[in-house]
Design a protein around this nucleic acid. Sequence first.
RNA 1: GGCCCGGUCGUCUAGUGGUUAGGAUGCUGCCCUUUCAAGGCGGAGGUCGCGGGUUCAAGUCCCGUCCGGGCUACCA
Length: 515
Amino acid sequence: MSVRVRFAPSPTGLLHVGALRTVLFDYLYARKMGGVNILRIEDTDRARYNPDSEAEFVETLRWVGIDFDEGPHIGGPHAPYRQSERKEAGIYAREIQKLLDNGTAYKAFDTSAELDEMRELQQINKIATGYFGGKWRDASASEVAEAEAEGKPFVIRLKIPKDRTIVLQDLIRGRVEWDSNVIDDPVLIKADGMPTYHFAAMVDDHLMEITHILRGEEWIPSAPKHIALFEAFGWTPPIFVHCPVIVGNDGKKLSKRHGATRVLDYAAQGFMPQSLKNFIALIGWSPGEDREVLSEVELIKLFDLDRLQPSPGRFDMEKLQWLSGHAIRALDIDDLIQKIVDFVAFDYARTYHHSEVAEDEGGAEEQAKRIARWASLELLANHPDRDYVRKCVVLEQERVTTLADFGEACEFFLVDQPKMDAKAVEKWLGQAHVPALFEVIGAFCEGGGNNTPEAYEKLLRDFQATSGLEKLGPIVHPTRVALTGKTFGPGLFELMAVLGPARISSRLSEATKVH
RNA sequence: GGCCCGGUCGUCUAGUGGUUAGGAUGCUGCCCUUUCAAGGCGGAGGUCGCGGGUUCAAGUCCCGUCCGGGCUACCA
């Protein structure tokens, strides 16, 4: 039987990192097995419904490079793929009737006030809370008919069998058992007629012929309900795969405090999607060899559910950064430039770089940095001299970890006069030999000297020889500061050849004035 | 409270009875070098949560215990 997996998010908000990992595993497994990857929207909770959510999922997953074979945005043989639409189509009404008919589900007319009272009593008596039958599980047909005739609202609950052991055979965790008497009767259909997750998800998984249910481990406690539901229908349940969660550095659930949880924020920060995938896949899974940097193809080829690990993993930003830098360095230069151009055209990245930054993430200072970074990125992407852009990017390629980093890295290439680091100016530009040095370089540039790294190197080394200075540093550093405003960056001779004589002369004369 | 899941260097992990407990990241030293990176070569960092047991032999199997996390809704 062909593998069919599904990502079934509830459209209540953004796509976060934890959910991404589950879809990634769905996707990798489907692709590896030549199976089908399905997107299904679980919008049965009207109160929490967010109309922008579905578009967020689709856009984000497109960026990451995770695609679907069936879903609300592309259709498929099991359409519709939104549960609200499936409800309208009468699917859940039809299925629940089967359970009502075979006696495995029942109508319960308790009011929410009654249920609250019941729970309170259970808590006081320190016994398990939940609905273990109440007065309706075994109510007589006439009692039910009477309540219905009065028009009382009701829910439909599943009859969890008594005095049994319910067994979950989880692919990652093995056998997990429950005494069925500790499992309460879950609501299947709410008073408003909408199905609950428990009902809709399992019915759809069966109808859509899902072979493996990959979901977060927070679902383990409700697994026995789902298994009992499959039994009530007489259906064979799919294979359950409860994936470990991703937590923050403090071991707690990933939240805003740990950095971005919204996947699209990583796109906006200029991370390479492949490295995010690579990184996320490595939390809870490994190929079993000592290999960590994996291409898309390798990821698919090597991935296997058998190698999933049960323990939760922490989200380590530094490793993501290493992976992203690695991916950028591996890129062909023209490809890289195209990616930078695309990045600058990416609306959300622009928005991200211009939105307010919370105090604990750097506040106004960080925000100013982002705005400057973006401005420089735009200069780079829109620069008329593409050959110049190419040369700048080549020199910075091995010094960045994200696409956005090119903003800061290339800034001095792009502006008329770079911002000068005051400390660097003070340290290097005041030295006695500097005026003579700049004069020599200026003369070389205006006199039509060769604009090559080799020629500049010879020029500066010759100056060193005649000046009597022992090291090249006192010559290189002031020049670098005058030309870039910084004490670090690409090789001086290479960057001089990129800047060219005109920029060099004007910057040197500016630098002379500054000091 | 009840039920459930988890526990190997700071972090991500390899490991399925016999290994000096391996790799990666991060940290750090050296090399390269005009700086910063990148790259190359080293180093520190783990009494495998703890305590019993089984065994000639336990990170690996069993029991107990501690700690962390989840669920305990007409939310998913």
